[in-house]
Amino acid sequence: MILVNQKHQVAWHKGITIRDVLKIMNYTYPHMAVRVNGTPVLDDQYDTYTIPDEADVRVIHLIAGG
């Protein structure tokens, strides 16, 4: 199980990527800061960075409104 933003549980499977998690969460905003167990992951790695089981994933949407 992966914990997203300390609130949502996402089922883990081998090879699950950041992109997969964003899709499951329906996180469509294009500009985010992602950390996996405290390590920042840049957006060019979203398709390749695989998330370990039990990971603490923080997805910070850098959106601050009108």
């Binding site: 933003n5 300390q6 609130k7 996180y27 905003y29 923080r58 997805v59 910070i60 949407h61 959106i63 601050a64 409104g65 009108g66």
Partner: peptide
Amino acid sequence: WLIFMDQVNN
């Protein structure tokens, strides 16, 4: 404007 910081990003 804190909706995302609060509700989405927690």
